[in-house]
Amino acid sequence: MSSSVQKISGLNRVIHEPARLILVALLSSVESADFLFLLKQSNLTKGNLSVQLSRLEQAGYVLIKKTFRGKIPHTEYRLTERGKSAFEHYRKSLGSIFD
């Protein structure tokens, strides 16, 4: 197996999925964001977005914080240190494949 093929097969599959990749990328540039923001920016359906966020939470990449803004329930999503590090590593790995 050539080194580039090894690199491709070694890519983080949790992040590599396009919908999750865009979510991690969006969250990487902010402290936290709510469901509506991620919905609007990612163009995913509500169901798909929920599923992908749950998957990222299970992997320990995203932290979900439920609060109230006034009387309205509000859910914020934040990338964990593990998630940040995994995304950074993914970017580097992807870049090195094309170098």
Partner: peptide, 16 residues
């Protein structure tokens, strides 16, 4: 922003 923007396109907390 609290009354106009966040209800339309969502809330974002910028990096500290």
């Amino acid at each position: 922003k609290d009354h106009f923007t966040y209800p339309r396109t969502g809330f974002v907390r910028g990096k500290r």
